[in-house]
């Protein structure tokens, strides 16, 4: 999608200092392109009067920004305390055995990816997950496979 200069201006205007708009502008880019493209980095730097390396340094600090295209369905499984206690690791093993895709990997056809994340503030639904930006839980091995096929689950 083309860079929406107007949307970018509206974001910048909210802050006393333009640099504060880095995160929101990177979000804007990621939301429209699926990931943060080199063009987005350039435009953000250009719009905010920063070096490309400044923007890249911020980009690399925050774990939610992606610099390559995502799989069609992304399942992120929480592995922190409550979720690990309730079997998150076993679900990851089950997924790997059933699909050959381990945590941190994408299926060969780009249909889905599996990731582990730290606490997502959903311990009441442990084992909790984010699937394509929706929070849910408790996850079971069967439900995980359904989510990876894009069949949805009962969200929280």
């Amino acid at each position: 999608m083309p860079w929406d200069a107007q949307a970018a201006d509206a974001v910048v205007a909210k802050y006393p200092s333009p640099r504060s708009a880095i995160l929101p502008l990177l979000w804007l880019g990621q939301n429209s392109d699926g990931h943060v493209t080199p063009e987005t980095v350039e435009r953000v730097a250009d719009r905010l009067g920063l070096n490309i390396s400044d923007v890249e340094s911020v980009l690399s600090f925050y774990t939610m920004f992606r610099t390559s295209p995502p799989a069609r369905h992304r399942l992120q499984i929480c592995r922190s305390l409550a979720c690990a206690m309730k079997g998150a690791e076993e679900i990851l093993e089950h997924i790997a055995a059933a699909t050959g895709v381990a945590a941190g990997e994408q299926s060969a056809d780009g249909g889905f990816s599996v990731e582990v994340v730290e606490c997502i503030a959903a311990c009441d639904h442990a084992p909790a997950y984010l699937c394509d930006e929706r929070m849910g839980g408790p996850l079971s091995p069967q439900k995980a496979l359904r989510l990876l096929r894009g069949e949805g689950g009962d969200e929280q």
Partner: peptide, 12 residues
């Protein structure tokens, strides 16, 4: 008064 909602991007 202005109120701005600002999103983080993953970092405890």
């Amino acid at each position: 008064q202005e109120v701005v909602v600002h999103r983080g991007a993953g970092a405890y």
